[in-house]
Design a protein around this nucleic acid. Structure first.
Length: 334
DNA sequence: CGAGTTTGACCGGCGC
DNA sequence: GCGCCGGTCAAACTCG
């Protein structure tokens, strides 16, 4: 039994509760086409249709967009105890200094309301031992760099952090934001540049979790990417923090197109999105289908149209109006 | 050579 | 205190 199913305000609502759709904390991203489990590349129109719905007791996509970041963070980071939401696999009670939430951030099946989930079927057996060895495979990992360990002599790794006299303040965790994407690609292109800084085996899952940091200087945004083992076609991406800079891809595109001048009266939707805090608006922007046909087979173009179409073809605002608050849209002159 | 990845070690919180 | 666990560090490595 899933909460989602139970509390679902409208079962027959196509937006709500459908397997293989993305879910944001109980709200769903209908950008995934349920009919094509193996591919996501040909469902543009459906996106627009399903996006339009909105409802009272959960966050619709539109509402999502209309909120500013903080509001949204608050909404999404409400304590997991809140009844209605949160049977989704994205359950980090962020803000909590200890990133440890009682519920696993993964591996709960978002879609199957059955009992088969056993939310946290506690391991015991599948301890890291097996998982660890499984994760590494036939790389030429036979470089024992034991010298490294010797040099640091046990636990002292670097002199930098030896100074323990300093009282360590728990660094606050930034709000997190997760979403599910059906994709064969693990690390989805999102216009920003990331450097991978870690990879860990995920408990009870054959798929590892990767940790990325934004490469832009001073930008503290992080990102985790892992694949759902319940449905390996689904990628769980979790962002943490806000970019303190513009999306490089958009910047590049817009600069090249010369539309970034401060006086620009008609910014493209994409650049408009890009100027807002990183996400979820950005994410939303990237979910919009492309408006040109040049890259139709290209998944990148499919999800990140602004990378390809920085300006010229303004989107069909008739459709977009249903998604984006009018304040976001350029003024239409008669 | 610089930027990005890989990967084992380390860290700190938490439960027992 | 010990071990688990999620997250991070950083040396070694790879790639363009």
């Amino acid at each position: 039994m899933s909460n989602i199913e139970k509390e679902n305000p409208s079962q027959n609502d196509p937006f709500y509760y459908n397997e293989q759709r993305g879910i944001i904390r109980g709200s769903e991203f209908p950008f995934l086409n349920d009919n094509h489990p193996s591919t996501m590349y040909n469902n543009q129109p459906k996106l627009m249709q399903t996006l339009q719905r909105s409802g009272p007791s959960y966050m619709s996509f539109t509402e999502c967009l209309s909120m500013d970041y903080n509001t949204l963070s608050t909404a999404f980071d409400m304590p997991c105890s809140s009844s209605e939401v949160i049977s989704s696999p994205i359950q980090h009670c962020s803000g909590a200094p200890s990133g440890k939430s009682s519920a696993p951030t993964n591996n709960e099946n978002p879609s199957t309301p059955d009992s088969s989930i056993s939310s946290s079927s506690n391991d015991t057996a599948t301890q890291q031992g097996s998982a660890k060895t499984k994760e590494k495979q036939q790389q030429q990992h036979h470089h024992h760099h034991h010298h490294q360990k010797e040099s640091q002599d046990g636990k002292q790794k670097s002199n930098n952090k030896v100074s323990k006299t300093k009282k360590k303040e728990k660094r606050e965790r930034e709000p997190r934001f997760s979403f599910l994407t059906k994709s064969e690609i693990d690390h989805l292109e999102d216009g920003y540049r990331w450097r991978k800084y870690g990879q860990k085996a995920v408990k009870n899952s054959p798929y590892p979790r990767s940790y990325y940091r934004c490469t832009s200087q001073k930008c503290t945004v992080k990102k985790r990417v892992e694949r759902s083992f319940e449905d390996p076609s689904i990628v769980i991406t979790t962002y943490e923090g806000k970019h303190n800079h513009q999306c490089p891809a958009t910047l590049r595109a817009n600069t090249a197109a010369g539309i970034l001048s401060p006086n620009s009266l008609l910014p493209s939707t994409s650049s408009m999105m890009a100027h807002r805090p990183t996400f979820p608006q950005d994410i939303f922007a990237r979910l919009l289908p492309p408006y040109n046909n040049h890259h139709q087979g290209d998944p990148t173009a499919m999800f990140y149209p602004h990378l390809y179409a920085p300006q010229q073809q303004l989107p069909d605002y008739g459709l977009l109006q249903d998604l984006v608050p009018s304040s976001f849209l350029p003024k239409q002159h008669p």
